[in-house]
Design a protein around this nucleic acid. Structure first.
Lengths: 117, 117
DNA sequence: ACTCCAGATCGACGCTCATCTATCTACATA
DNA sequence: TATGTAGATAGATGAGCGTCGATCTGGAGT
């Protein structure tokens, strides 16, 4: 971070020149921005936000068969959303037998909100 | 919120019946989830996250002409991203003369992170 | 008035996403 | 071993997104 910008562009300058000096942006930032954006993107859907919400309210693991009837969506669609959340590292899952249980990875959410604060 | 789920689905049940009782989900939640999802979606792009980051680092208002050269993107694209952020209420803008200045609406970000905590 | 420039808007393109139905996998119970 | 069921995967479709070049808008300076 800490990009040194000139916050006030020059008001008078010879025509043909750009208004601001080009600034080099450190690429280190971009990797983290991409990682955080992945999490934000996963949260950028009302269904997924509600899924996370429900999972957090029930601190333990929640069976998928409990989640599906909460939404007016097909089972594959809910499964798809859960996968998105899992790929972003926001939730984890276990499948001991026939049922699958999902839970929130609080550390991932914490990392995200702290980065944003 | 506080949806009362049965966390343990019945193991044995007559065939033909669904595995879980249907649960009514309060719609009140959905409006807020949609509002928060709108913010998350706006943050779900590395460029926009970096824009927010730069704007916050320079607590005052930053000229668009300073932002454009930070990215390997065309001016219309950066303008488009800024509009997305503005529509989500994350940033605001002023245009006193020829230049446009953008700034972060900290209250919106705070509302989001607190909702997520 | 005329020109120049910063920034927003438009229209197009390719790609991703959310959703569905249909199917597949694998565990459980009889 | 045969059947039923939970959940994941595959394929299709329509909508939305990120990006661009071109154009429009309007303030500044001559």
């Amino acid at each position: 971070m800490s990009v040194d910008l000139e916050l006030e562009p020059k008001t008078k300058r010879p025509p043909g020149e750009p208004c601001c000096e080009p600034v080099v942006y450190p690429d280190v930032e971009r990797e983290q921005a991409e990682r955080m954006a992945k999490i934000a993107k996963a949260l950028g859907d009302p269904v997924r936000l509600q899924l996370v919400d429900v999972l957090r309210k029930h601190a333990g693991k929640v069976c998928v068969c409990e989640l599906v009837p909460l939404f007016d969506l097909s089972q594959p669609t809910v499964s798809h959303h859960l996968k998105k959340l899992k790929d972003a590292g926001i939730v984890g899952s276990e499948r001991p037998g026939l049922w699958a249980y999902y839970y929130v990875r609080e550390d991932a959410l914490k990392e995200f909100t702290e980065w944003l604060s």
